[in-house]
Computed example of a mutant assay.
Amino acid sequence: MLNFNVDFTGEFFAFFLLAACAIVGAVLAINFTKVVHMALSLAFTFVSLAGLYVLLQAEFVAFVQVLLYVGAVTILMIFGIMMTKHQSEGREPGRPLLETLAAIGCLCLFGILFYAIRNASFPKPQAELPEDNTMAIGKLLYSAYAIPFELVSVLLTVAFIGAVALAKREKEEEEEPK
């Protein structure tokens, strides 16, 4: 069952380094008490995931990961943190029973996933992947999927305008004298 025939290559070590960075960043994001530190550790996790995408030869997904999550979402979180008022609140006391149950649940989930992955049979790809997958995605996006792409951009624009309208209405309600 535990047949570990592994070639110790640079790609193997890069995978484990990036996976460890992603896990450490995620654990730190959960455990930090300051929100800015949480956002920065989350950005660290996103960058590590982008590195894992590069190892999987999904350069476009890695680029989108860095552009959207690291660039936009993390910066948006930091701006949101800086623009809002935060009052210092104490850390809630630890709950040893819940923490123990969570650790047992995590170990059980790890065991189930390890067993499932070790016993899975992955089919061979039917067709050869394109040499330049970013160009292939771009050609498909702007030819066969042009209409859904434009509909998503209209949807995002409408959502943005709605968010601005709601924020403006809330601000006007706060400023009204009572």
Rank of each mutant, 00 (worst) to 15 (best):
K34C: 05
A103R: 08
L68F: 12
L56E: 07
L140V: 09
L18G: 01
L107C: 10
T9W: 03
A39E: 01
V36Q: 12
V27L: 11
D7M: 06
I81H: 08
L18N: 00
G105M: 11
E59N: 09
S88F: 15
G10T: 05
D7C: 03
L155K: 09
T134N: 11
V61S: 05
E174Y: 11
A26R: 00
I147K: 08
Y53I: 05
I161C: 10
L68H: 04
D132E: 14
T84L: 13
T157S: 13
Y53P: 00
P96D: 10
G80C: 05
Y69H: 06
A144I: 04
A136Y: 13
L52P: 00
V64Y: 03
L129M: 12
L156D: 02
Q87F: 15
V164H: 02
I112Q: 05
A62E: 03
A116Q: 11
T157Y: 09
A50N: 01
K34N: 11
M135V: 14
K168Y: 13
Y69R: 04
A62T: 01
L42K: 02
G51W: 01
I75V: 13
K34D: 13
F160M: 14
M77I: 11
V158T: 10
A136V: 09
R169N: 07
Y115V: 11
E131M: 12
P148Y: 15
L98V: 05
A20Q: 01
S88D: 11
Q65P: 00
L28Q: 02
L18M: 07
F32I: 02
N31A: 10
L52I: 07
F46H: 02
L113R: 03
A14K: 04
G51F: 01
F114D: 05
L129E: 08
P123H: 09
A20I: 08
T33C: 04
A163T: 06
V154G: 01
E131Y: 10
L97R: 07
T9E: 04
G138P: 02
T74I: 15
P130C: 14
V154H: 03
T100S: 06
Y142A: 06
L56P: 00
N5Y: 09
I117M: 15
K178C: 10
L98R: 05
V164I: 15
T45H: 00
L55V: 08
A43M: 14
A136N: 10
S153A: 15
I161Q: 04
G25Q: 01
I161N: 02
E175S: 07
Y53V: 02
L2C: 08
E174P: 00
P130H: 12
S48A: 15
E174C: 07
A58F: 03
G90F: 14
T74R: 04
L141F: 12
I23F: 07
A39W: 01
F160W: 13
Y145S: 06
G162I: 07
A163S: 06
G25H: 00
K124M: 14
H86W: 15
V47L: 15
F44E: 00
V152D: 05
A14L: 12
P96E: 11
M83L: 13
P93D: 07
H37T: 09
T9R: 02
I81L: 11
T74C: 14
A146T: 06
P96H: 09
A144D: 10
F4K: 10
Y53E: 11
